[in-house]
Nucleic acid binder design. Structure first.
Length: 705
RNA sequence: CCGGGGGUAGCUCAGCGGUUAGAGCCGGGGACUCAUAAUCCCUUGGUCGUGGGUUCGAAUCCCACCCCCCGGACCA
């Protein structure tokens, strides 16, 4: 059955050591863990390694905020991550960190070979520089006034008040956080990884099954244009590894992060850098990376290019999953659906989530939804009522009425048991192909049949007339339960352990499904899973809402732009950009914080006016843009492009009075033209937008005071 | 607007060229009492997003359109 013994290295993406693990991340780790447990159950050799992505500016900043050094911070996060994963049964062979001597050595060696192979190029770019501290400044180390809302003291990558993102060059009155000096633009040389030389290699790789065909199609879109070089260096004041042969230059953390897979492997096996690479290169070993679709770029484009250029083998396959939504929407802190792993585990059995995700996971990178209603239905209706019930109704009866002794399966159960055993190959193929939804569906169908068999035989009646016949029925039903437990074991290891204990059998392997149990005595039954009470879900949601107010806990607040973003977080980078790991804030938070206090002069600086909408036109080629002309009385007419298309039709706007900002600098918006001001509206957008109007009597052109 | 995925019973989904379209849950009726009020039987419920086309035959292939989700552009 097991066939040839496989040697497999499996990884999950490295979570970023800047925030806690949440249920979005868990999709990936649970998916991977189930696959690993399945392969082991089949008797294959599997190493499952992972670790934290521990480098980068956000980590520096976060550590600084807490008044600790980055090393201490990432050590704490590493511990927390390990604990969280353990709660969910995610059984890594090793959970390491990219901030380790082995990873440094590997990164240096791989880099030097990539460089020697001609895959790097130096380019000069302009960047802010602190002339007093003599250091280049990453976005996070520049503060200034937000160019949009004028809030002072904002970081160089985005405003915490209005949540808009921008470049540090856009800031008004920028200052270095180190010296307070005004940064100057200074040229800096960055090192880039060239991708174009790897073009043919990559295309062939995709065609050879590196990814599933549906994914390959998407990847090939990138090849329509020349592949742009990837910036892999960061200038000093960076938490990471210095690039060999350079001064003040560090590896961008996305360069050393995937190398962390090798480091974790080598660390597990006690190998040095050279031996780790040799081990990695073993052609007999399969390598599977489980990742989210948000980091396809890195794993399908950069990573194979790096490996190939460095003379290392490329992984066998990328297993890509989609994002998690909760109740059909993105996880939301204010709704309490942004649920941290530790909070979940406090309220609910982690097995529920493993089972539920399994019922939803297929081989494609489709998004999956955690609907609480569906969740409770699955757990109670399938896991408890079907699966657990089968053992739960047999074992106690056997103990109470038949001395707890198993006999020989009743003859009339032969077709049932044959059918259940017959599903083994189909189930194994489904597991191997990551089609867990099919696995659970199939198992449930078989459990239904076993329950029906039990019902038809009515052993509770039979036991009075013919105890031995009843023993045969109970034995058969428990045999069915045992085989189904083998099938479920990768998903529900705890459940399986309890069944093994109750039936007094050795830890189950896939091959054990062939042979029936010998007659023997069983142990008293204990519940395999508790019924799920919706009240517990509500409690969990409540606590998740509360943690929103704990602003002090920066780790919990940190946007999950981890290497392993299992959550519906915005994609952080593009393949061509000089990607900085800046967290992209949601378009509008549900509850915007109060902006800092301004003085009267600052208020006066904003010239708000009343205007009448003359024309309004929805722009065809824009998702949300509307072109509006305003009559502003003595100030003449204005054309404004406003992002309110999803909320308003032209008819609803023409003729009405609105309030708008008249002294905002004109802004060119792509191909759509220039916007001369901004119409005032409230709401989180883009659908919920509410344009403001004055009471009757106001005239176009009047200023709002 | 561009790219990707999807629209099948109230809900979650399977089926992806071949008999009268399926499952689980939910609803309704009944049976049973071993079991975590679980189980078993019966049952209501669908113009398979819309309109064309190809075919002896289409939920399944092709074209157009509508709607939803995910990226992107753009916006905020």
């Amino acid at each position: 059955m097991a066939g040839v013994k496989r040697n497999i290295l499996v990884t999950s993406a490295l979570p970023y050591a800047n925030g806690s693990i949440h249920i979005g991340h868990l999709v990936e780790y649970i998916q991977t863990d189930i696959w690993v447990r399945f392969q082991r159950l089949m008797g294959h050799d599997v190493l499952y390694v992972c670790g934290d992505d521990s480098h980068g500016t956000p980590i520096m900043v976060n550590a600084q905020k807490r008044g600790i050094d980055p090393e201490t911070f990432i050590t704490q996060m590493n511990q927390q991550h390990k604990e969280d994963f353990a709660k969910f049964g995610v059984a890594f062979d090793n959970f390491y960190t990219t901030h380790s001597p082995l990873n440094r050595e590997l990164s240096e060696q791989i880099y030097l070979r990539v460089k020697d192979a001609g895959y790097t190029v130096r380019k000069e770019i302009e960047q802010f520089y602190d002339p007093v501290a003599s250091t280049f400044l990453a976005d996070r180390f520049i503060k200034g006034t937000c160019p949009f809302c004028k809030t002072p003291d904002q970081y160089g990558d985005g405003c915490e008040s209005c949540n808009r993102t921008y470049n540090p060059t856009d800031l008004i009155d920028p200052k270095s956080v180190f010296s307070g000096a005004t940064p100057v633009l200074k040229k800096s040389e960055h090192i880039y990884l060239r991708l174009e030389p790897a073009r043919d290699f990559l295309v062939k790789l995709y065609e050879a099954g590196f990814v599933d065909p549906s994914v390959a199609n998407k990847l090939k879109e990138w090849f329509a244009e020349p592949l742009r070089d990837w910036d892999i260096s960061r200038d000093a004041r960076f938490f990471g590894f210095e690039i060999p042969g350079e001064t003040g230059k560090y590896f961008y953390n996305w360069f050393d992060a995937p190398i962390g897979y090798l480091a974790s492997l080598g660390n597990k096996l006690g190998l040095d850098a050279a031996k780790t690479q040799k081990y990695w290169n073993d052609p007999e070993m399969e390598i599977f990376h489980f990742i989210g679709k948000d980091i396809q770029y890195f794993h399908a484009l950069f990573w194979p290019t790096m490996l190939n250029a460095a003379g290392l083998r490329v992984p066998t396959k990328l297993a890509i999953h989609g994002f998690l939504t909760v109740n059909g929407e993105k996880m939301s802190k204010s709704r309490g659906t942004f649920i941290n792993a530790s909070v979940y585990a406090k309220h609910l059995d982690p097995q529920y989530l493993r089972y539920y995700f399994a019922t939803k996971l297929g081989p494609t990178p489709e998004d999956l939804d955690l609907s609480f209603e569906d969740f409770a239905g699955r757990i109670n209706g399938e896991l408890v009522n079907k699966l657990a019930n089968l053992v739960s109704r047999c074992a106690p009866m056997l103990s109470r009425m038949l001395e707890g002794k198993l006999g020989v399966s009743a003859a009339d159960a032969v077709p049932l048991l044959r059918e259940i055993r017959g599903a083994a190959d189909e189930l194994a193929a489904a597991y191997d192909g990551r089609n867990y939804a099919l696995v659970t569906r199939t198992i449930c169908t078989l459990a239904d049949k076993a329950n029906k068999y039990f019902e038809d035989q009515a052993p509770w009646k039979l036991v009075k007339a013919d105890p031995e016949a009843a023993r045969g029925v109970l034995t058969a039903a428990l045999e069915a339960g045992r085989i189904l437990t083998i099938y479920l074991k990768p998903i529900l290891p705890d459940f399986a352990a309890k069944v093994e204990k109750c039936l007094v059998i050795q830890p189950l392997e896939w091959d054990d499904l062939q042979e029936a149990m010998e007659p023997h005595a069983i142990h008293p039954f204990e519940h395999l899973v508790q019924r799920l009470d919706m009240k517990l879900v509500e409690n969990m949601v409540e606590e998740s809402k509360e943690s929103l107010s704990q602003k002090s806990d920066a780790a919990n607040q940190a946007p999950a732009t981890a290497t392993a973003a299992g959550a519906p977080q915005p994609t952080v980078t593009t393949p061509a950009s000089t990607a900085s790991a800046k967290p992209a804030a949601p378009a509008h938070p549900d509850e915007e914080p109060l902006a800092p206090i301004i003085n009267f002069d600052q208020f006066l600086a904003v010239d708000l006016r009343i205007a009448r909408v003359l024309t309004a036109e929805s722009l065809e080629k824009s998702d949300k843009l509307m072109k509006i002309t305003l009559d502003v009385g003595h100030l003449g007419q204005r054309t404004i492009l406003a992002g309110i298309k999803k909320a308003y039709t032209p008819e609803k706007l023409v003729g009405r009075l609105v309030m708008f900002c008249a002294n905002l600098a004109p802004r060119t918006m792509g191909k759509f033209g220039t916007s001369e001001g901004m119409i005032c509206a409230a709401g989180p957008g883009p659908v919920e937008v509410f344009v403001l109007s004055p009471d009757a009597g106001a005239k176009p052109g009047q200023r709002v005071h």
